[in-house]
Design a protein around this nucleic acid. Structure first.
Length: 364
DNA sequence: ATCCCGGTTA
DNA sequence: TAACCGGGAT
């Protein structure tokens, strides 16, 4: 039996991965096909979107961005608020602001060309160790080894690392570098990440389809379920607040733009109080409540989970005359609310309002 | 309901 | 080291 086909062990782990990648790589809109040269702009844009975000989520956003801004110059020339609008729903909104800043720097200071060296890429906003290595390898074929969560998991299993990933970043990086080929560094990087995403998954890895089982310490010791070691995270505390859906007689909703820094930075929001340190809207709400005390009703709550806390937001609806509130306030048509670019939390509030208004004969 | 997953920045 | 989101699995 063993002589019918060449012994797999005559192929090393790198060659095995590249063979697997040639046959099983995912077809993705930012990937070059065949002998095409990858477009650094598309590689960079995709890698920024892929930070903390899965491929299936990224694909439609990527296509939309490319439609709107096919070149880095066009992205640099865009209004940052339009970039945030298109980013809405992807989360981690600092990525969008850094993306725009980076596009402007590349356009203004680098003649529209990305630097090819990992160390130079690292200096750009929004580009950290992972993305610098990914762009250098994938877009420019440089000898760089991006290490993301997929790579960490694959390496931890193959080398049977049974201590927390967090404590082994350097070891994992050097092991991953050791198996990086001289040529096809971009394909190799994407091969490991594809394998991690589609085969060597966090739970229930599909080892029966894996090209690396003969090299994999975790598989050979039946320990894939126990590697990598997950660090236990402390459970998020709960916060509560009140969101105000303020609707005028033109069926428009009052929205504000948040400050650039911190939570949901730069995004549009429904005014709310009680759950953030900066109570920017408390005065507005106080005045509204005094002027029209009988026009409000709590319609229920929406819940949302952030990185470090859980939020329960009571929803209060207020109806105001269109002319009562105009100076400096930003009204948005409820009919077009889907296209203004609200983060998920605020979308939940608006959707809750709409469904509760539908289900009630007398919502006020 | 409750977990788990994940790069960059300040 | 903590802040920063949304999706998916169980």
């Amino acid at each position: 039996m063993e002589n019918i086909t060449p012994r797999r062990s005559s192929i090393n782990i790198t060659e095995q991965l590249l063979l697997w990648y040639d046959a099983h790589q995912r077809i993705l809109p930012w990937r070059a096909v065949g002998r095409e040269t990858p477009d650094p702009y598309r590689v960079w844009l995709s890698e920024i979107m892929l930070q903390q975000t899965q491929v299936v989520t990224v694909v439609p956003y990527f296509n939309r961005f490319i439609d709107l801004w096919p070149t880095i110059e066009s992205l640099a020339a865009a209004d940052v608020n339009n970039v945030l609008r298109e980013w809405a729903g992807l989360g981690y909104y600092a990525r969008a602001r850094n993306l725009h800043r980076c596009a402007q720097i590349i356009t203004r200071d680098h003649a529209g060309e990305f630097p090819k060296e990992e160390a130079e890429l690292l200096k750009l906003p929004g580009i950290g160790p992972y993305t610098a290595a990914a762009v250098a390898a994938i877009a420019f074929g440089k000898d760089a080894t991006p290490v993301d969560g997929n790579v960490e998991r694959v390496i931890a299993r193959v080398y049977r690392i049974k201590t927390p990933i967090k404590e082994n970043k350097l070891i994992i990086k050097s092991l991953a570098s050791k198996t990086t080929p001289k040529a096809r560094t971009g394909d190799y990087a994407q091969a490991v990440m594809d394998l991690g995403a589609t085969v060597c998954t966090p739970r229930r890895p599909l080892c029966f389809t894996c090209p690396l089982t003969e090299f994999c310490g975790a598989f050979l010791h039946e320990e894939t379920h126990a590697i990598p070691i997950s660090k236990k995270q402390k459970k998020a505390p709960k916060r509560e607040g009140t969101a105000y859906v303020i609707i005028n007689t033109a069926n428009e909703i009052l929205l504000y733009r948040r400050t650039d820094r911190g939570l949901l930075g730069g995004m549009l929001e429904v005014p709310s109080v009680g759950w953030e340190q900066d109570e920017r809207h408390s005065e507005l709400i106080r005045k509204l409540t005094m002027c029209i005390p009988h026009s409000k009703a709590i319609t229920g709550t929406v819940e949302h989970v952030f990185t470090h806390f859980k939020l329960v937001l009571r929803v209060v609806v207020m109806r105001v005359e269109k002319n009562d509130w105009h100076a400096g306030l930003h009204w948005y048509s409820l009919d077009k609310i889907e296209s203004v670019g609200l983060p998920k939390l605020m979308l939940k509030v608006v959707k809750h309002f709409r469904s509760s208004a539908e289900n009630s004969n007398n919502p006020m």
